[in-house]
Amino acid sequence: MTNILKLGIPKGSLEGATIDLFDQAGWKISTRSRNYFPSINDDEITCSLVRSQEMGPYVAGGTLDCGLTGIDWVMESEADVEVIRPLVYSKSSDQGARWVLVVTQDSPIKTVEDLQGKVIATELTGFTSRYLRARNIEADVQFSWGATEAKVVEGLADAAVEITETGSTIRAHGLRIVCDLLHTHTVFIANKEALKNPAKKAKIDQIALMLKAALDARGKVLLKLDVPKKHLDGVLDILPSIHAPTVAHLSDPEWVAVETVLDRGAVRDLVPQLKGAGAEGILELEIRKVC
């Protein structure tokens, strides 16, 4: 049994963000035009570019040992995989994207129950069909290769189940969102047999740890400042940290250096408070990982 880990990288909308995340985590993935097998700076890993929709079945079947895809596509395929860790790293909000039920503005459909006997266009046919069956709703769920909203606008379908982040595209087509059916996010998944291989499991655990560390760092910054000892207590009272700020002595016995990791969004309001409390030489630094 080979110990080389076969890693799936999602091709398409998540591809660039995934490669950027791996770069921040310490792995350089290099793609080449018309090549589905990117190189990676780790002799224990090989990479394949795979459509998100196909990632679950490839991992479940053992073609890949692990990969990243949306939880929606794992649910759609009902792939028997192990979800190692959720990873939110797209440009959308922390809530991720959502699959919504969409109709025309003048449609009589107001609730999911109104779909009885209707035609629904979607790429997420398996999940949608099971969702409706669980509610005893009989409808004609048809697979859509794309331009799903247009099928509703043109009257080819009574409704659509489509993915969105903000809903702006749906509204631009003059459509109305009835309700959310599924909130989705990216997940790191693994083949259950691969997890029984100690070497592969160790590498999968390493990837999961480092990806999380990179993501956790994205909303954080390192703040460094010099503080007169006489003002230290006042500064520490207003300075947030993960556990407790680091305080180190300087060559001047009347001053100390303080470091802390905090939320990026807090810096704007915090710096004036720190200056008012006596801090000087305040530096805001980017960080790559938080473990």
Rank of each mutant, 00 (worst) to 15 (best):
Leu5Glu: 01
Leu7Gln: 01
Ile9His: 07
Ile9Lys: 04
Ser13Asn: 15
Leu14His: 13
Leu14Trp: 15
Leu21Cys: 05
Phe22Thr: 01
Asp23Gly: 06
Gln24Tyr: 04
Trp27Asp: 05
Trp27Gln: 02
Lys28Ala: 04
Ser30Leu: 04
Tyr36Val: 11
Phe37Leu: 15
Pro38Trp: 01
Asp43Trp: 07
Asp43Arg: 06
Thr46Trp: 00
Cys47Ala: 08
Leu49Asp: 14
Arg51Ile: 13
Pro57Asn: 10
Gly62Glu: 07
Thr63Arg: 07
Asp65His: 01
Asp65Trp: 00
Asp65Lys: 00
Gly67Tyr: 00
Leu68Pro: 01
Thr69Tyr: 08
Trp73Val: 15
Ser77Asn: 14
Val81Ala: 02
Glu82Met: 13
Pro86Leu: 11
Pro86Gly: 13
Tyr89His: 10
Ser90Asp: 06
Ser92Trp: 04
Ser93Glu: 14
Ser93Asn: 14
Ser93Cys: 12
Gly96Arg: 07
Arg98Met: 10
Ser107Arg: 08
Asp114Trp: 02
Leu115Trp: 08
Gly117Asn: 11
Lys118Asn: 07
Val119Met: 11
Glu123Thr: 04
Thr125Gly: 02
Thr125Arg: 01
Phe127Gly: 00
Thr128Met: 09
Arg130Met: 10
Arg133Lys: 05
Ala134Glu: 06
Ala134Asp: 07
Ala139Glu: 04
Ala139Ser: 12
Asp140Phe: 13
Val141Leu: 11
Gln142Leu: 11
Gln142Phe: 13
Ala147His: 12
Val152Met: 09
Gly155Met: 09
Ile163Cys: 06
Ile163Asn: 05
Thr164Tyr: 08
Thr166Arg: 10
Gly167Ile: 05
His173Pro: 08
Ile177Met: 04
His185Pro: 09
Thr186Ser: 12
Val187Lys: 04
Ala190Leu: 05
Glu193Lys: 01
Glu193Asn: 06
Lys196Tyr: 09
Pro198Ser: 08
Pro198Ala: 08
Ala199Ile: 09
Lys203Gly: 00
Lys203Met: 01
Ile204Thr: 00
Asp205Val: 03
Asp205Pro: 03
Asp205Tyr: 04
Gln206His: 11
Met210Pro: 07
Leu215Gln: 04
Asp216Glu: 10
Ala217Asn: 05
Arg218Lys: 11
Gly219Lys: 08
Lys220Arg: 04
Val227Leu: 05
Leu232Met: 08
Gly234Val: 05
Gly234Asp: 02
Asp237Cys: 15
Ile238Arg: 01
Ile238Ser: 02
Leu239Ala: 06
Leu239Pro: 01
His243Gln: 10
His243Val: 14
His243Ile: 15
Ala248Glu: 14
His249Arg: 15
His249Ser: 15
Asp252His: 08
Asp252Phe: 09
Pro253Ile: 15
Trp255Val: 15
Gly265Asp: 09
Ala266Val: 15
Ala266Asn: 12
Arg268Thr: 15
Gln273Thr: 13
Lys275His: 15
Gly276Tyr: 13
Gly278Val: 05
Ala279Pro: 03
Ile282Met: 03
Leu283Lys: 03
Glu284Gly: 09
Leu285Met: 14
